[in-house]
């Protein structure tokens, strides 16, 4: 009997091949403790943040926004803090890069929302970048805060009078949480100050060296 005649053998070998590849690419990472270590600063979601995460899931935000800063220099700059933001928050003018996303930041994510497509920008470090009012205005009418945006208006998250529903408030709470599982802003500024000792002798000095980086 030729090999092509053995249906049962085919099924067994096919399953064995599948097991082999799946074991190395799936089971081995699953048993890697470093991928499940939240680190010192990661905190589980609050009830409100979880409710907002559910809204994020239901509205399919994940299909246009990723939540992963790739390990590329250009991305750590694009999604980092620009001069305006560092001045507003820390009183110095500097470019603080956003660190690439790390496995520990995601340990409380079930399901994951890494995303694959950026019709809009990455949201992995968006928490704290804008205030709540900005987010609510942006959700209700994206073009009021971001002219030229092609994001749809999420009018159903607001009352007829334009007041945010509980879902909208929860969604904003979730967005503000994104990226806060590591203290990248504080640590980035501290590191910057360490490299620039003149900044430690207070009143904030306006550094002119850094080029403004767009959000």
């Amino acid at each position: 009997m030729k090999l092509e005649a053995k249906a049962f053998l085919l099924v067994v070998v096919v399953a064995a091949f599948m097991f082999l590849g799946s074991y190395f690419t799936m089971v081995v990472p699953l048993s890697d403790p470093t991928l499940n270590d939240p680190g010192k600063d990661a905190k589980p979601y609050t009830a409100l943040e979880l409710q907002g995460r559910q809204t994020y899931i239901s509205e399919g935000c994940v299909y246009c926004h990723t939540q992963q800063v790739r390990s590329l220099l250009e991305e750590t700059q694009r999604y980092g803090m620009g001069e305006e933001e560092t001045f507003k928050r820390f009183g110095i003018r500097a470019l603080i890069q956003a660190p690439p996303s790390q496995p520990g930041e995601y340990v409380f994510d079930k399901p994951h929302l890494l995303g694959t497509r950026r019709t809009g920008p990455d949201l992995g470090r968006v928490g704290g970048k804008y205030d709540n009012t900005w987010h609510l205005n942006h959700l209700r009418d994206p073009r009021s805060t971001s002219p030229g945006s092609i994001m749809p208006s999420y009018t159903w998250l607001f009352t007829k009078a334009g007041q945010p529903t509980p879902d909208a408030i929860a969604l904003v709470a979730y967005l503000q949480k994104l990226g806060s599982n590591i203290k990248w802003r504080e640590e980035g500024v501290a590191q910057y100050k360490m490299l620039h000792p003149e900044l430690q002798q207070a009143p904030p000095v306006v550094a002119q060296t850094a080029k403004e980086v767009a959000p």
């Binding site: 085919l10 096919v14 399953a15 690419t25 990472p29 499940n36 340990v107 399901p111």
Partner: peptide, 30 residues
């Protein structure tokens, strides 16, 4: 026959509610 087997294994294993974090992403793309 391969399709029948692959689809069944992929579908059932990927839908198990046991993954989280980056492993969930890895299984998702598996």
């Amino acid at each position: 026959m391969g399709t029948l087997l692959w689809t069944a294994i992929l579908w059932i294993v990927a839908n198990l509610p046991v993954y989280s974090g980056v492993n969930d992403a890895n299984v998702n793309w598996w």
